[in-house]
């Protein structure tokens, strides 16, 4: 692994990524991902060997162009069908915990 630095993530960094990803992790998972993600990122460091300053990035390998269609009304998913998989629904709405707090 000449010229490759070892990317050691800290526990705080793992917790920060988990927070960004909205993932509740157990203490064991945090430690496991800290070491595994460090190893994978170290492996990925070898990309830095390549000079890519003049190389454009590829987002899609095959040419993909924006596609326009006529603005025609199509049948859409009925509300009952759309809600059939919701963990909690009532009167045509999805139930979630309070999102907005009341401020005095």
């Amino acid at each position: 692994m000449n010229g490759v630095c070892f990317m050691a993530l800290t526990r705080e960094e793992v917790e920060h990524i988990a927070q960004l990803a909205r993932l509740a992790l157990t203490e064991d998972e945090k430690e496991m991902f800290r070491s595994q993600l460090s190893a994978i990122l170290s492996y990925a460091e070898r990309l830095q060997e390549l000079d890519t300053d003049a190389i454009p990035p590829t987002a899609h390998a095959v040419d993909v162009q924006g596609v326009m269609r006529d603005d025609v009304v199509h049948p859409s998913l009925p509300r009952d069908a759309a809600l059939a998989n919701a963990p909690q629904a009532q009167d045509g709405f999805v139930i979630v915990p309070t999102v907005l707090e009341e401020h005095a």
Binding site: A44, L47, P57, T58, A61
Partner: peptide, 15 residues
């Protein structure tokens, strides 16, 4: 830039 964009550029080289 260090990871995602770099990977996309090397993707161009692979292609």
């Amino acid at each position: 830039d260090q990871y995602y964009k770099k990977a996309q550029k090397v993707r161009t080289l692979i292609r």
